[in-house]
Amino acid sequence: MKCRMPPSRGGLRSLKAVVTLLMMHQNWDVLVVLLLTLWLTKMTSVTFSSENVAGDCPGTLYGDPSSTSFAVIVLQEWWGVTDEVKSKAQEVQKRCACVTFIPDLYRGKVTKDYEEAGHWMEGLDWQGAVKDVQGAARFLNSKGLRKVGVTGFCMGGALSLASAALAPEISAAAPFYGLPKPGLCDLSSIRVPVQAHFGELDTFKGFAAPEDARNLAKMLSGKCDFQLYMYPAGHAFCDPNCHRYNKEQTDLAMERLAKFFTEKLT
């Protein structure tokens, strides 16, 4: 899973600094474009209730809940809520014409260090993280969004499947190259629609290798509406910061994901 993490842009602090700088230099044209882009994106930072022992969880919402009937939760990779995760959430929001939501499972922690990311993933309270996803779904339901799907990549993919098994608020799941450990949940209990995306060249056995994907298919065959797509690519092929990134296969996967969620959540 060793891929390069892009530097953080500093979130809202950096945004405020950019706006201030543009105002100081009276660069009104650029400022108007920036503010218009933010308005169209409709990004909102929130805090929602979670039964995780860590307490309330921060999250970021994209889109207008009054303009749609469904939402998709987008779960982070092991780096934390990076710019890439935010970009994926915005892409899903636009492709599906829905609301997307990122719960910050690390509660503000982001890293670009491979070893630190691995340590955080191993030390994550996975049951608690599923509680965060459940809390996020309930929050979205409270906004009038009747159905909630979940997707994620790598660690987020594994948590997507776990949430489909453990959280009744989840109505569909689209995991990317990641399976939870057997002790977390019984994947054969999943009854909601699942669309899984894995790489034929993935070498992470026991987590995302082709045989793991095919075992998942055997487990869920006849149990739920299950789709498995295999791509001629390696692990993390949807991450543009990874040397295994494959744009053609990523675009195909995102097209399939958008069609899946639109069909299953409306």
Rank of each mutant, 00 (worst) to 15 (best):
M24R: 13
A129W: 03
G11T: 03
K205G: 11
K42E: 13
S87Q: 11
V92W: 04
G59S: 03
S189M: 06
P58E: 09
A209M: 05
T47K: 10
K16P: 02
C98Q: 05
L159M: 12
I73C: 04
R107Y: 06
T250N: 09
K109T: 11
L105Y: 02
R146I: 08
K2F: 12
I170H: 08
W28D: 11
G123S: 15
S49N: 10
K247L: 10
L31S: 00
R95C: 04
W78D: 00
A137L: 02
M1G: 10
A162V: 01
L12A: 14
G135A: 08
G206Y: 08
L40K: 15
E84A: 13
K223M: 11
T20Q: 12
S45N: 13
S45H: 15
F204Q: 10
L75W: 01
V30P: 07
L228Q: 05
D251W: 00
I73W: 07
T68G: 03
G135P: 01
C224R: 05
T203K: 15
P168G: 05
E263D: 14
M230F: 09
G206W: 08
K94N: 09
S49A: 15
S66A: 15
D202T: 00
G128M: 06
C238A: 10
F207Y: 12
T41Y: 06
V46L: 07
D113C: 07
P232D: 03
L166Y: 05
H235Y: 05
E255G: 10
D83P: 02
Y177Q: 00
E51M: 14
T262Y: 10
S50A: 09
D186H: 09
P175F: 04
F207D: 02
L140C: 00
K181Y: 14
A217Y: 12
G157F: 05
S163L: 00
P232T: 04
K218P: 06
E122M: 14
G55F: 04
E248R: 12
L257T: 09
N241H: 13
E91C: 07
R13H: 10
D239L: 13
V81I: 04
V74R: 04
T20Y: 11
Q134N: 14
L15K: 08
K264P: 07
L36R: 15
A167H: 03
E77A: 00
I190N: 04
L105M: 10
K247V: 09
H119Y: 15
W79H: 01
V19I: 15
E263S: 12
Q93F: 03
F237I: 02
F48V: 06
Y106I: 01
K259M: 09
L220E: 00
L161W: 04
A196C: 03
E169I: 06
R9G: 14
N241D: 15
F48E: 01
Q195I: 06
R138E: 11
M254K: 13
K131I: 10
S50F: 08
S163P: 07
R4Q: 13
H25G: 09
C185Q: 06
Q249M: 09
